[in-house]
Design a binder for these strands. Structure first.
Lengths: 234, 234
DNA sequence: AAGAGTCAGCTGCTCTAACCAACTGAGCTA
DNA sequence: TAGCTCAGTTGGTTAGAGCAGCTGACTCTT
């Protein structure tokens, strides 16, 4: 009776090993054989538990080398979020739009607290990114990486690792789904100008202007999304 | 050479089954035995793949009954986020504060678009929640569920399922970690009054006032968190 | 002696085969 | 008719064997 759920206990116990041992990311975990003995379960159960923990980014498994404490990044969340959005999209929901709305709300909320507090180094980096995007826009579509880097650099000054990763996760999931399922890419020139305006507003310390700028930016993406909607391509 | 990663392929193929089949949440998946044959792999591999998908909330496994398409909620994200925050906390990082900052940014960003657009039904529900919290505050600590319900009901009107779930996930992870690791619970009376003020501002359609109110609310929690910080309890 | 190739040993990965445990539903019993 | 029992299905767990990738020390060549 006391051992009602033998299975998921193993996951918890492995988590405990990490927590109680104050193990940092990258620290080696016991081998499968050691875990078998340590936890008193079969190898198979150990592996299933590790597989689940791996899916959550809590452990990292390297074939022929060993098992390690994972980076605990938001990477697994991207997987789940992407799948969820794709599945929802195919079922005719506006899941991609919802994801965009989530990004917009978050970035808007961050921007107001960011204005006037961006380190000079980041401003310089943002300048460079806007210029790079301008150059790319001349010659056709903008590299996705450039857009991602802009959004990432913008909020770097908040010095919040979790925040950066969550933002990036949302960006990534959105980008993946959009490129896979829709072909409504916004006009590169317009996007570039909007980035420039956001940066200018932030540098000027004008909260309202910055908020308007970022809403414009997302509004642009949203419009393109709506017009290019083709929920169930076969 | 063509089958470099035999393992993770299985996960992808099962995902495909769901996507291509347009399977809605709750739809039954093939049994383990059927998947063995269908994918041409051993039962063990099938189970490991399912275990990973389960950890991501993509499938739901019911002992003795079958395997089903999962709800794809943000529940697994809560797990990962909670663990990450706890681990970071024990290592002396301000992970809990970062999580709070994330919530604050998101709720702030949402609030500005919410003001004046909350359905009457939700306003009534929020009224009731504030009153319930007031009654509870009289007799001591407020039930966590009441606070959660308030934050959930506030953004219900945006009609964005993803948004609601992400907010709830963040709330949940934060709450779990705080109750486990810190004992800096804010004054119930103050919290209640702040909820009342947020609601009043939203009802009045005053964006600035609402923004200030929600910042006050989070500022209060943050202060309590900082003062009660005890990063590494043994 | 220095470098490159090899191989033994770790590690995780996959498979097979058997049995245990939870749930369902048809059939039996009262 | 109401409730129980039991057989069948499904997932859960264990065991043992062999495969596959990586590392590092050993050996052979230069």
């Amino acid at each position: 009776m006391h051992s009602r759920k033998v299975a998921s206990d193993i996951q918890e116990r492995i988590k405990r090993l990490i927590i109680d041992g104050r193990l940092p990311s990258g620290a080696p975990l016991p081998t499968e054989a050691e875990l078998m003995e340590l936890l008193g379960v079969s190898r198979n159960s150990v592996r299933e538990a590790l597989k689940a923990l791996q899916a959550m980014g809590i452990v990292e498994i390297r074939h022929g080398f060993g098992t390690y404490v994972g980076a605990m990044s938001m990477a697994p969340m991207i997987e789940g979020l992407t799948f969820r959005t794709v599945a929802g999209h195919y079922r005719g929901e506006d899941s991609l739009l919802q994801l965009l709305e989530l990004r917009e709300a978050l970035e808007t909320g961050l921007l107001t607290r960011l204005v006037g507090r961006v380190p000079d180094a980041d401003l310089a980096a943002l300048d460079a990114l806007v210029e790079r995007m301008a150059a790319e826009a001349e010659r056709g579509p903008v590299r996705a990486e450039t857009d991602r880097a802009f959004h990432a650099a913008l909020y770097r000054g908040l010095d919040n690792q979790l925040l950066s990763e969550v933002l990036e996760a949302f960006w990534d999931a959105f980008h993946r789904v959009r490129t896979d399922l829709v072909d409504g890419t916004p006009d590169p020139q317009v996007t570039c100008e909007q980035h420039r305006e956001i940066l200018a507003a932030v540098r000027a310390g004008d909260t309202l202007r910055a908020e308007a700028a970022i809403r414009d930016h997302f509004g642009n993406i949203r419009t393109r999304l709506r017009s290019a909607a083709r929920p169930a391509p076969d």
